[in-house]
Amino acid sequence: MSKGRVLYIDDSEVFLERVRTALGDAGYEVVATTQTVGAARHLAGCDLVLVDYHMPGFDGASVLASLRAAVEKSEQKPSFYLYTSNKAIASDYSILGFDGALQHKGDDRALVPQVDAAMRMRKLRALSAARSAGTGGRG
């Protein structure tokens, strides 16, 4: 059983394959694409979208904007995370419109616990929102 569906957008096919392997081995269903244009068609059912910030001809923010526009009408919106080794950019994730940032640490296996945490955070936020709305949770 899949732990969740992840869309990963990066211009590097090498990274795409490595991330696909790392997350796939960890039990995630991974859709990886270098195509920033048309990536929105992969959004259906996605829990998490990882976006590389620096891509030729695009930047993460513009990709994010197009993706967010595409999911505007969707009932279940995915969480959007930056995936970058640049700490300065990572710290500005909120300004850039992302829900969070995952650190690119060079070791692809280090991505798995971050994706795990992002998935948990997504569910926790949904639960928290439900409680605030008085529709779920106890205590």
Binding site: Y81, A101, A117
Partner: peptide
């Protein structure tokens, strides 16, 4: 602001 830290703190809070 690391996602692991934020997720844990959110869980603990809830």
């Amino acid at each position: 602001d690391a996602v692991e830290v934020a997720a844990f703190e959110e869980w603990r809070r809830l």
